[in-house]
Design a binder for these strands. Structure first.
Lengths: 139, 139
DNA sequence: TTGATTGCAAACAATTTGCAATACT
DNA sequence: AGTATTGCAAATTGTTTGCAATCAA
């Protein structure tokens, strides 16, 4: 006599599995839909990623340009860490490093700001793209 | 006999002025349109802020939820600094602090990542909202 | 059975674009 | 004159919602 509870459905499972199997991929809802070969509806994909985000299994990244689709990536709860994203090639990488902890402590202590690592993405350029940029400027 | 050049128009001026007069405001295109009392069309506002962003006079911040309008803020070129934004109340603040410099140097030196401060926003909670959260959890 | 979930089609909202009229130089 | 800009209306796009059918418990 459970008063309320979530039902486990095939669709939910398939979508969650997709992310577990592709832990490093950073994909749009559209891409998930396509990868699942339309076995689930677009709407369901959106509802699922939203749920998974709030459950802490996924992270959502929204681009800066308008009309740019949001990206979702596997990143189970607790695994809190910053992400860095290259503005040129789009690469998204995890940033695990003690210095990050020092920085967030400083933010909290000196600026009264509690950083949410899961929600924050640092934008900039990766080594390769930065090198490319410098070269192009030279030419 | 200029071959090509941008025209200085009343609209462009009015919009740029708006931001210069409200240097700390962080507003949507809609808000600018409203503040200008519809003296310029919505389309023109969008075109202007886009131009001003590429000229380095403004910074653009895109929220994480879909359909959330982008925010624009005066922040003339060169004035590069990180911004922190509260996920609860939406407040956006400048973060000027030596530690930020140390952090970006570390990123470049140890991770080969060149942070673009103008494009990056740190998400988290401000002091007030964090306190509110703690209180609500207690209740 | 009861309530949650699905998925289609329609609704939405922010932003962009086509294009004719208009303003700058 | 010649070209950039304006601004309306219409188009786009990612995402959300209404709702009837379906499925899990």
């Amino acid at each position: 006599m459970a008063i309320r509870g979530a039902y486990q459905t095939k669709q939910k499972e398939v979508i969650a599995d997709y992310f577990r199997v592709h832990p490093d991929d950073c994909v749009t809802a559209e891409a998930v839909y396509a990868a699942l070969d339309a076995r689930v509806g677009m709407t369901t994909v959106y509802r699922a990623v939203t749920r998974l985000c709030s459950e802490g299994l996924l992270r959502k990244y929204t681009g800066q340009s308008a009309g740019e689709a949001a990206l979702y990536q596997y990143s189970p709860c607790g695994e809190s860490h910053l992400h860095i994203r290259c503005l040129d090639c789009g690469v998204l990488a995890h940033l695990r490093c003690d210095v990050v902890g020092d920085f967030t402590n400083h933010l909290r202590g000196q600026h009264g700001f509690v950083l949410d690592e899961g929600q924050t993405v640092l934008y900039g350029r990766c080594e390769q793209c930065e090198a490319k940029r410098k070269q192009q400027t030279k030419e």
